[in-house]
Design a protein around this nucleic acid. Structure first.
Length: 254
DNA sequence: TGTCTCGGCGG
DNA sequence: CCGCCGAGACA
């Protein structure tokens, strides 16, 4: 009497997974089809979210149509990677709040971030609402939160700390060399503008009043003067690296 | 207690 | 309209 109780293989899913269709026979929703999936171990799944939670990222379900059980190349076209990109650098990246500069916190009653500017003489409060890209406020010395993080290689061995070139001097209270490096690397990675380092002419005031003398958009490193000597030195390094690469490629020839 | 089934909420 | 899930019915 009860129709279609059979579970069929589902080609879009790994081996062993079964798909089942159950027709509703009575009630207001009579005629509606319910679709279920069964894992190789027999666990029943009644929705795509439930399936996705179970499979994690072992199976990409972004183009999987739960209802039909097939891969649907069209329709779910939203999550397309931009073309021309060889690697998706965001894949596998940790969503680690400690690595992200502080973002603007806004009470949920507001529709968008609001900047309050107090004008000096009149002491009148002016509201400025910005549109488009918001400038993220940065906490002073926020890079110090990177302190103590260690890099691991593929074999999960801790990588040796890198020695800082003598020309790179830390700025700020109790900033270690490794923090300078982390701060610098982060700035190169995140900052849209040039990295010049912090101003140093006011170093004696800086630790007393960082709010005035520190530019939070720059890494915690003193401004560096690039000289011709540095440029030629770097050119030599690049030259050397290219030669080594050439040698290595020769070794790969058949 | 576990499974089956339909209702119904919210997108 | 439909995906998803709660919960009643039933064993």
């Amino acid at each position: 009497m009860s129709v279609q109780r059979e579970r069929y293989d589902c080609s879009a899913l790994p081996k062993g997974w079964k798909r089942e269709e159950v027709l509703r026979k009575t009630g207001l929703t009579s005629g509606k089809m319910d679709v279920y999936y069964y894992s190789p171990s027999g666990k029943k799944f009644r929705s795509k979210p439930q399936l996705a939670r179970y499979l994690g990222d072992s199976v990409d379900l972004s183009s999987f149509d739960f209802r039909t059980g097939k891969v649907n190349p069209v329709l779910l076209r939203k999550n397309k990677k931009p073309r021309g990109t060889l690697f998706d650098y965001s894949r596998g990246m940790r969503n680690d709040a400690s690595l992200v500069p502080p973002i603007r916190q806004t009470a949920s009653i507001f529709k968008q971030p609001v900047t309050v500017i107090k004008t000096q003489p009149s002491s009148k409060v002016k509201l400025e609402i910005k549109h488009g890209l918001q400038e993220k406020p940065k906490q002073l010395f926020w890079e110090k939160r990177l302190q103590g993080l260690q890099a691991f290689d593929a074999q999960t061995e801790v990588m040796r700390h890198v020695d800082l070139p003598a020309a790179l001097k830390a700025v700020g209270p109790n900033v270690e060399d490794q923090t300078v490096l982390q701060s610098l690397a982060t700035a190169l990675h995140l900052s849209p503008g040039p990295i010049t380092g912090a101003r140093t002419e006011a170093k004696q005031y800086l630790e007393k009043n960082p709010g005035v003398f520190v530019n939070p958009n720059q890494p915690l490193v003193a401004a560096v003067q690039i000289q011709d000597k540095d440029i030629t030195q770097q050119e030599e390094r690049v030259d050397f690296a290219r030669q080594q690469l050439q040698e290595a490629l020769k070794g790969l020839e058949p």
